[in-house]
């Protein structure tokens, strides 16, 4: 009886300790989320009172050419980041997964951009990518009329590379630790059976790290959909809307045009897109991931 009471009291105290976090989650995450869905049904210019408009904002989204454009930009940006980031991270991790004198220095170098503040990182690139800055003039000497960040044709690709350079270190370290967890005996056994290095990599190493690969894929996709700061600092969504991803379009509608109802509708679309992708990926996990406990 006494131990029962004690357990209840401990549970209550545990709950109290968790309460600040729960309240924070409720007030700063869950309630705003519900509020955004509510706001997306209103016309609200922030400067006057909101009025209920039903699904008018969503109907407007369906007709909005800029919104369609930003869906395309978001798709290219996300696919570009995921493809480049995962490929480079896996490649770097495989290269760094050797025992050599000084390898720790290389590992730190690859990781160092991750710890740099994102605005500082973006401003340095903005300086390097001025029309007459070092990178563009370098390319101009090679005979290319390059203005990477201010040309609508090259701006998005440039942003993808800048973002991947910043973030690839983290994925590399995660892959590296996964690679180091692959038992050397299995690879050795495969080699003794006559497998080529590529076959060993493809049929032993990759399946062994597939849980990590899947996790990194998921996190990178969601992360790419949420990238805002470097885009805002480097291009502000320009030139000519070429880098206006969904999240930039949402920010512009809300805080530049003060269309809060419409911005909330974009936010709702983004939210459901991320939710859908996440659910889809969890379904795919069964088909793609091996050796999971």
């Amino acid at each position: 009886m006494a131990s029962h009471l004690l357990a209840r009291r401990e549970a209550r105290e545990g709950f109290l300790f968790a309460l600040p976090y729960l309240l924070g989650m409720l007030v700063f995450v869950l309630l705003p989320l519900v509020a955004v869905l509510g706001m997306s049904l209103t016309g609200w210019s922030l400067l006057d009172a909101p009025t209920f408009k039903g699904f008018a904002n969503y109907a407007k989204l369906a007709r909005d050419l800029e919104f369609r454009g930003s869906l395309g930009v978001t798709a290219i940006f996300t696919v570009g980041i995921v493809a480049l980031n995962l490929t480079v991270a896996l490649l770097l991790a495989s290269l760094l997964n050797v025992r050599l004198a000084g390898i720790a220095a290389f590992r730190s170098m690859v990781f160092s951009p991750v710890v740099m503040p994102i605005v500082a990182w973006s401003l340095i690139w903005k300086f390097l990518l001025q029309p007459q800055g070092p990178l563009n003039t370098g390319l101009q000497h090679l005979g290319l009329d390059a203005n990477l960040l201010l040309n609508p044709k090259t701006a998005l690709g440039t942003l993808i590379v800048i973002e991947v350079l910043k973030a690839v270190g983290l994925n590399t370290v995660i892959f590296l630790s996964a690679l180091q967890g692959v038992p050397p005996e299995q690879r050795e056994a495969a080699r003794l059976d006559g497998a080529s290095p590529w076959q060993v990599y493809r049929h032993i190493t990759l399946p062994m790290i597939s849980p990590t690969l899947f996790l990194v894929f998921l996190v990178t996709v969601i992360g790419a959909l949420k990238v805002f700061t470097p885009i805002w600092v480097l291009t502000g969504g320009g030139p000519a809307g070429a880098t206006t991803t969904l999240i930039v379009a949402m920010f512009k509608q809300g805080f530049t045009f003060f269309e809060f109802g419409y911005a909330s509708a974009i936010a709702a679309v983004l939210f459901f897109a991320v939710l859908l992708l996440t659910l889809l990926q969890w379904r795919l996990r069964k088909a793609l991931v091996f050796y999971e406990d």
Binding site: P152, G238, A240, G241, K252, T256, F258
Partner: peptide, 18 residues
Amino acid sequence: WLKANDLITGSLDQVFQP
């Protein structure tokens, strides 16, 4: 104006290209 300004900013990015 706020929307027009944004549109014009975007098109000037294209105008000031070689």
